[in-house]
Write a protein that binds this DNA or RNA. Structure first.
Length: 388
RNA sequence: GUGGAUAUAGUUCAGUUGGUUAGAACACCAGUUUGUGGCACUGGGGGUCGCCGGUUCGAAUCCGGUUAUCCACCCCA
């Protein structure tokens, strides 16, 4: 038997939840005046090398990368932002710094070891906002994410942090690295490697011993420049006013290289170790990094498969069951089926059955209304009807 | 990439110290004397016991390998 590849899943049992999620989320995004964008699944490999960053695991070892028949070095997209930014620049919106608010959804591919909440092909729903420098755009985006999650009654914790900007991050990084170098001996192997590769990641280490050593580490939020600090305060104040619960997590590091200033993550405690259900933040330098004019941007992405177990939709009766009890009624029923399907969900049972058999089936299918033609109805040209 | 666990029907699982034709529940399909569903009852279909090899008169059961799944690390959505 040919089976789906490792880490790839057919969406069958949850397909109703899946489509419901996309429909509802899109609706909310459109209420925020975000427009739909679809970008290719396949992109040039260097797009991700330059945006996500060569130091990241995603680019380093998780990409589905190959040479196509034209000799191009390509890969299946491991995340959504890079492609959207590429599109923004390619269609020259950067020249005039045209504000653009887009949402997207679709499959992403990462060659990882599968586990709960982690697939090799998975789906994200995300938004990106270009051209708005203000922290109020960050707030808008966080509000949008929380509204989507709230609409499915999902329990979450929102963590926020500020990663600083070009002005304050380098000085902070220097003091962090020198702090880490002093402690180097006491840190785990991974952290020692991270000091040179990605020092911020050390803060995020789950090793207990490391966390003890890091208690006195310099915190980014105490080392922000005036501007970043002001924005981070506005962010917190406005979230409070909007009644969005959050906690500041100075160890929150978004894994992709392109983030700066606001970083946030929605976390669930109900779905296992892969608990991040939505992650995002500001990436003001990314458009430039991909050879566009400097345009600030902010966005987030949600992992749909991780959210589905948290989404509950109550099965409700809907649709019409149409059945016949005599072969002669078939034409009449078919005509009715033709008419009803213009504006109704209709199940047409084409087998001749007894009344109780029809009812049993209609019940099983969760239909709301039953319409049957028997001998009597055929004579009178009517339908026997019942609400379930 | 590392570690641990698991693999028997569509699903959840039984299956004794290796021994007839591998079972149950749920699900599915059909029916229960003639036009009112959910309940109940009766019957039915469905498994090369993950795959390959070995031990044995005989393997779902023991051994080796392999693949996949699950959980965690790592990483991230």
């Amino acid at each position: 038997m040919i089976k789906a590849l490792r880490g790839m899943k057919d969406i069958i049992e949850d397909s109703d939840k899946f489509t419901y999620f996309i429909k509802k989320s899109s609706e909310i995004a459109e209420n925020f005046c975000f427009e739909y964008i679809e970008t290719p699944l396949l992109e040039e490999t260097r797009l991700f090398k330059r945006s996500v960053g060569e130091s990241s695991d995603i680019v380093n070892k998780e990409m589905y990368q190959f040479t196509d028949k034209g000799g191009n070095d390509v890969c299946l997209r491991p995340e959504g932002t890079a492609g959207v930014v590429r599109a923004y620049i390619e269609h020259k919106f950067d020249k005039l710094k045209t504000p653009k608010q887009w949402y997207y959804f679709g499959p992403m591919f990462r060659y990882e070891r599968p586990q709960k909440g982690r697939l090799r092909e998975f789906h994200q729903f995300g938004v990106e906002s270009f051209g708005e420098e203000s922290v109020y755009e960050d707030i808008k985006v966080i509000l949008l994410a929380s509204k989507i999650l709230d609409s499915f009654n999902i329990n979450y914790t929102l963590k926020i942090n500020s990663l600083g900007c070009d002005e304050c991050r380098p000085t902070y990084m220097n003091s962090l690295v020198s702090f880490l170098d002093e402690k180097k001996e006491n840190l785990c192997e991974d952290c020692q490697r991270r000091i040179t590769q990605n020092p911020l990641r050390v803060l995020d280490c789950k090793n207990e011993n490391c966390q003890n050593e890091l208690k006195t580490a310099p915190k980014i939020t105490y080392n922000l420049c005036e501007n970043c600090n002001k924005d981070f305060e506005i962010l917190q104040n406005e979230l409070k006013k909007l009644n969005i619960q959050f906690e500041v997590d100075t160890n929150l590091v978004r894994g992709l290289d392109y983030y700066n200033k606001t970083a946030f993550e929605f976390v669930s405690t109900e779905i296992g170790a892969q608990s991040a259900i939505c992650g995002g933040g500001r990436y003001d330098k990314l458009v430039e990094m991909l050879n566009g004019k400097p345009v600030p941007a902010v966005g987030f992405a949600m992992g749909i498969e991780r959210l589905l177990p948290l989404v509950n939709i109550e099965p409700k009766r809907e649709g019409i069951y149409l059945g016949i009890m005599t072969e002669d009624a078939r034409d009449m029923a078919l005509n009715k089926f033709n008419e009803l399907t213009n504006s109704n969900k209709v199940y047409f049972e084409n087998r001749v059955r007894k009344l109780n058999q029809h009812l049993k089936k209609a019940d099983k299918l969760n239909c709301k209304k039953v319409m049957i033609i028997g001998e009597d109805e055929l004579k009178n040209g009517t339908f026997w009807e019942k609400e379930l």
